[in-house]
Design a protein around this nucleic acid. Sequence first.
DNA 1: TAGATTGTTAATCGATTAACAATC
DNA 2: TAGATTGTTAATCGATTAACAATC
Lengths: 238, 238
Amino acid sequence: MTDSEYSVRMEKDGEGIDRPFVSPAVIRRLPRYFRYLRELLREGKTRISSAELSDRMQVTASQIRQDLNCFGGFGQQGYGYNVSYLYSKISDLLGVSMGLHAIIIGAGDLGRALVRSTMFEKRGVDIIAMFDVDPDLIGKEFGGAKIYDMKDLEDFCDSNVVDMAVLTLPKEKAEEEAARLLSLGVTGFWNFTGKELIYAPDEAVVENVHLGDSLMSLNYELCRQMSEKSKKSSKETE
Amino acid sequence: MTDSEYSVRMEKDGEGIDRPFVSPAVIRRLPRYFRYLRELLREGKTRISSAELSDRMQVTASQIRQDLNCFGGFGQQGYGYNVSYLYSKISDLLGVSMGLHAIIIGAGDLGRALVRSTMFEKRGVDIIAMFDVDPDLIGKEFGGAKIYDMKDLEDFCDSNVVDMAVLTLPKEKAEEEAARLLSLGVTGFWNFTGKELIYAPDEAVVENVHLGDSLMSLNYELCRQMSEKSKKSSKETE
DNA sequence: TAGATTGTTAATCGATTAACAATC
DNA sequence: TAGATTGTTAATCGATTAACAATC
């Protein structure tokens, strides 16, 4: 994408939203606020105080106020926060109305599960295509996204705006294909391959997902809980 | 599971592994060490220093030594760490050889993608069954796991050891079914439903996974990167 | 022994919480 | 105005990094 194309994109609705540098800890909490606010909205609540939200979310009211203030004064003294206003502000920060375009690399089980879910739609991300090397899959369609031949990646990226690639291909090819995508101007990577991608922040933005790591930390706590119980029960037997 | 069954389980190979209380920040890094050590093992490396591992993993050597020391002295002054020894120690901590038994609740796209992956096998977790309410799915088999009727959950849990439930069912039913499982003695939950489950630590161990949150923080950084680029380019045009 | 590298303590840094003045 | 609740500063807490003595 050229600079002038960027400008067009920005004018759409990204312009005017100031995304200051804020600690990653805070950024990672924004999506959770987003979820809880949507729930409040669904419940028809129009206003909420940091104290009440604190109760629901199991975080301190202080942290909520601190977090939200990183981006400006979204609340009002004596009143609290207006749910729909706060929701729209956080949506904007998270680029929900940016209409980001994504492609999925790899149409295996995970790629298909993702494209069929409501995940992207809910967050304003458009899956405009999938890519695979398997001739049996190429041409098929899942969740409204057509599967293209990996060979056609260059052509596709030349004639379409692609903001982000979801990597669900085998980890052995992860680095190679990420480099290929980067050279085609794709700078966002949601990486499920298990091979950690590391780029400089001005080069590309990478979110490495490791589901296995999540499972293993559950394992640790579960084993710990079990040994504690067995300790306790052996004490009782004494 | 009764207390005596716990003891049997513990004697298998969980016994003797001390899992002290360590800050969650450290625990969450263990799986990453596990992955990098496995890679070193595959490369045939027999020893590694904290400095060299630091290089690979992009964390400080100090942190590595600090982390590993929470669980005991796994290294040796003047030498470093023995890769296979360290790997086995971390595997033990993470319960890889415990042979934990898991069931998957919900045989939809995600449940099937998970069961077909090598994720569980690599980490020593056995998927012993899947459950669903869809008559078209009940009786079928995916990735070696048979799909049972949700109605048979009680029977199944009575006659099988179930350490953990992987929740991939619709979020509306998450709380209800988690409570049901808990009453059947299942205390570990790997929760993909999007409905956050909150239990006291001695009641159940829950790992809430929110893939959408991960996508949204990528979104934030991507949008930020874009606005920075457009700022730069508009400056150049001035 | 000399060199290397851990284990561990102390110093620094960052993030969270508490407190309260500002203000709606 | 009085009451409520934010925005914001200051205090606390925890996690990371640096430094170095212990020791292989």
